[in-house]
Design a protein around this nucleic acid. Structure first.
Length: 199
DNA sequence: CGTTGGATCCGCT
DNA sequence: GCGGATCCAACGA
């Protein structure tokens, strides 16, 4: 197997309580393992992330704690899910200390197992590349919605498993996608030349 | 209060 | 490349 066994909690990342930009980089290559309600399972590998925190004008946490963003201010390793554009969900992995609002937006991932199940949760498309190459596509494929708001990623039905980059892979940083404030900041991180990066 | 504009995706041009 | 779908938090009056 190219990746660790998807059991237990010993491989949960140990860097999520650190600086969110470092966490965003180290999350590249890590795995998300989804156990669906119907019994199926899928695994994806994170290839694109963005860092946000309460001191960043582009962040949902910038204006302080609210009902919507409260998970961002909670303990690291939990999931912040938000609904946007009237139809899409996106998700962040909460980072840094409890009380400090910070999270890493998961923008894209590479299907590793269960592509048929991921495809079944997307509508209309069958190209593997289009299953999880955008933040809302990823949430749709992994069936992430408000019911997973604040979910502890050490536990089923959605687990985060630490994994290093492959030999030869490296990290590139760019401006973030789709924001209007703090456009110049290089807080988007991608694995170089990975075809599953959103763009 | 009413208005505005998204951390998006998809289909059509 | 552009606009439509369609919710809701943030902001100004």
């Amino acid at each position: 197997m190219r990746f660790p066994a998807h059991t237990g909690t010993s491989t949960f990342p140990d860097f999520l309580d650190g600086p969110v930009d470092e966490a965003a980089q180290r999350l590249l290559g890590c795995l998300l393992v989804r156990d669906y309600e119907d019994g199926g399972q899928a695994t994806v590998r994170i290839v694109e992330t963005e860092a946000y925190d309460q001191e960043d004008p582009a962040s949902h946490a910038y204006h302080g704690l609210s009902e919507r963003n409260r998970a961002m201010f909670g303990p690291f390793g939990h999931l912040y899910v938000y609904f946007t554009y009237g139809m899409h969900y996106c998700c962040n992995i909460v980072c840094e200390a409890d009380g400090f609002g910070a999270g890493v937006l998961i923008r894209a991932a590479e299907p590793m197992a269960g592509a048929d199940i991921l495809s079944a949760h997307r509508h209309g498309t069958h190209a593997i590349r289009d299953l999880t190459n955008g933040p809302a596509k990823l949430c749709q494929a992994l069936a992430i919605d408000k019911t997973l708001y604040g979910h502890d990623l050490r536990l089923p039905p959605l687990r985060l498993v630490a994994a290093p980059l492959e030999p030869g892979e490296h990290i590139e940083s760019t401006p973030r996608i789709g924001i209007s404030k703090a456009k110049q900041r290089l807080r988007r991180y991608i694995i170089n030349d990975n075809p599953f990066v959103s763009r």
